[in-house]
Write a protein that binds this DNA or RNA. Structure first.
Length: 575
DNA sequence: GCCGTTTTCGGCCCGACTGTTTTCAGTCG
């Protein structure tokens, strides 16, 4: 799949044109193509061949020709030509917070700085501070930016963002001048990684609230502190998180929620719709041509006045939700309360740390009707996988526990390894004893596209395998997904009556949102599971539900919204 | 570079904060 490479090339062309001072609107169209291709869950080559790429709004003749060239030759002439115009290392400078295209151009032309190391020297010698348009403070900001780039990956996981949001919200709740608090930004949309946490506050004492925030004890560093906006790095138990707090007037609260929730692309589309209707939309409200506010205090009213159904934050990515809202075709999204059980759980028997009964009791408190115990199979030696005998004993043990247990049922299961040749770690006779089987790949993740794909397809042919767990194997920020043909996997899942897992762990979120959407469109059931190894991991279910919902999942698209009887019937159909 | 229920040419989203300035440019979201 060449989507990521093509997306990267278009972004690079846009970067170079920015440094060269090219037409901003032209640059924007390159960025748009980069985003569109990067977001596509389907192989761009397939879309090109079927002619669907040419129909995609935002991809015109010129971009299409460049993409075609890349598919045929592996390079884009326009990209090579642009690269000749600047030293390629200037693109690294652009990644430094505080350095934009103008700054990069200025240091290159005036100081002959081409690299981050060169920039560091220019900062140390004072040359940067003496440059026209710069100064001591700006040089210091850029020096910090260089450090930031070296230390951090820049983006954090959902659970890390959640902790930061909780710390700051709890603090703000304690301030007397704060009337309302709302977390916005990519965290509200439950994007898979978060850049910074945006928190909105209604208050008439903006400056006071901001200065309280920036001087709070959890603040490591203050980045900005004005009358309506404070920006700081705060300390959590696992990381340092960039948090922005913005104070807005009550009459603009809804507009601010809308604006700061984004995504940027979604907002651009809304403002275009406003302009066409002779109105203006900004973070203070929606205004008619006499500049009179027609909506602002309530977020839903903004959408209503623009002629749209209310769009849930999870869908605000400009992936068709605006058209659907216009035509009253938005899905009724799945919610956490629809979940009736967790189908992927580890215990002490393999690499978990809990007893079966502890997990069952905790799940009961969450309102679940069933859980499935799925310890590893013996090939996963690192995870202390169970032998066939150990699994057989565990089945008996679970039956016994079920006899005494009230209010929740424990299903017997396993997370069985898909071996290198696509065969399964246990024989079918043993698998037939189990209520529910998830299968997954834990070895050879870096092998070829053909290999990892055919292993997965073969596993799905097994009548006892009800679900493929973490289908791409990615670990966000740590490990790339396998090079697996998801179109083929989804097709096979539909044909073989196999569910695909949405692993809810914030480090996995696998399937990801766009793959969820493809699976749903193909009629595949999703199983949202935590894959927990400990008690407190059960609460990650919400991230999985959000990811599925970002893929437009409704309740009926998700396996573990079924009652126990319905679930058993569903499993029986394949056997 | 892309697009069209005002348009095949002429538009293309909007504001806060900062720092370097003498009224504004650059960056960010």
């Amino acid at each position: 799949m060449k989507n990521a490479e093509i997306s990267e090339l278009f972004d690079q062309m846009a970067d170079i044109m920015e440094i060269l001072g090219d037409d901003p609107f032209r640059i924007n169209s390159y960025r748009k193509v980069a985003r569109l291709i990067g977001d596509m869950p389907t192989d761009v080559e397939e879309l090109f061949k079927s002619g669907k790429l040419a129909e995609t709004p935002g991809i015109g003749k010129s971009s299409l020709a460049k993409i075609e060239e890349f598919l045929k030759k592996g390079t884009i002439t326009a990209h090579k030509d642009l690269l000749k115009k600047i030293p390629p290392t200037l693109l690294d400078l652009l990644k430094i917070p505080g350095m934009g295209p103008k700054g990069v151009k200025a240091v290159y032309e005036n100081l002959k700085v081409k690299t981050i190391d060169g920039l560091k020297k220019a900062i140390e010698s004072g040359a940067l501070a003496n440059l026209h348009g710069f100064g001591d403070k700006k040089a210091a900001t850029i020096a910090k930016g260089v450090e930031f780039l070296r230390s951090a990956t820049g983006r954090i996981r959902l659970d890390q963002a959640a902790e930061a949001a909780e710390i700051v919200c709890n603090f703000l709740k304690g301030l007397t001048d704060v009337e309302k608090i709302q977390v916005a930004g990519s965290f509200r949309r439950r994007a898979e990684t978060i850049g910074d946490v945006d928190i909105l506050v209604v208050s008439s004492k903006g400056e006071k609230v901001i200065s309280s925030f920036t001087s709070a004890k959890f603040v490591e560093e203050v980045l900005a502190s004005g009358t309506t906006k404070g920006s700081a790095i705060i300390k959590t138990s696992t990381s340092s998180v960039h948090v922005d707090v913005r104070v807005v007037p009550a009459e603009s609260f809804g507009a601010a929620c809308q604006y700061f929730t984004g995504s940027k692309q979604h907002n651009v589309r809304l403002r275009e719709i406003a302009l066409k209707a002779k109105m203006k939309l900004n973070e203070y409200g929606l205004f008619d041509k006499q500049d009179k506010m027609v909506a602002g205090a309530v977020e839903k009213d903004i959408y209503k006045k623009l002629g749209l159904d209310y769009i849930a934050p999870l869908l605000r990515e400009d992936r068709g939700e605006i058209e659907a809202a216009k035509n009253h075709k938005l899905p009724q999204l799945i919610e956490l309360k629809d979940i009736k059980g967790d189908l992927h759980i580890h215990t002490k028997a393999s690499d978990g740390i809990c007893e079966i009964t502890e997990l069952a009791e905790a799940a009961k408190k969450l309102g679940y009707k069933y859980i499935c115990i799925t310890d590893h199979s013996h090939s996963s030696a690192i995870a202390h996988g169970q032998s066939a005998k150990q699994l057989a004993d565990q089945i008996k043990k679970i039956h016994k526990i079920n006899e005494k247990l009230k209010g929740i049922t424990i299903l017997t299961g396993t997370e069985v390894d898909i071996l290198a040749d696509g065969s399964i770690d246990f024989d079918n006779k043993l698998l037939a004893e189990l209520d529910f089987v998830v299968a997954s790949i834990h070895s050879g993740l870096a092998s070829s596209r053909e290999k990892v794909t055919s292993r997965t397809l073969k596993a799905m042919d097994n009548p006892y395998i009800s679900c493929i767990a973490h289908p791409t194997g990615r670990l966000i920020g740590e490990r790339e997904p396998m090079d697996i043909d998801m179109t083929a996997v989804i097709k096979q899942a539909a044909q073989t009556h196999t569910a695909l897992e949405v692993n809810a762990h914030p480090m996995r979120l696998d399937l990801k949102d766009t793959h969820c959407r493809l699976a749903i469109e193909a009629g595949v059931k999703l199983a949202i599971s935590t894959d927990t190894h400990r008690l407190d991991g059960l609460i990650f279910m919400g991230y999985g539900v959000a990811t599925a919902a970002r893929g437009w999942a409704k309740k009926r698209d998700v396996l573990n919204t079924l009652s126990l009887a319905e679930l058993k019937n569903w499993i029986k159909k394949k056997r």
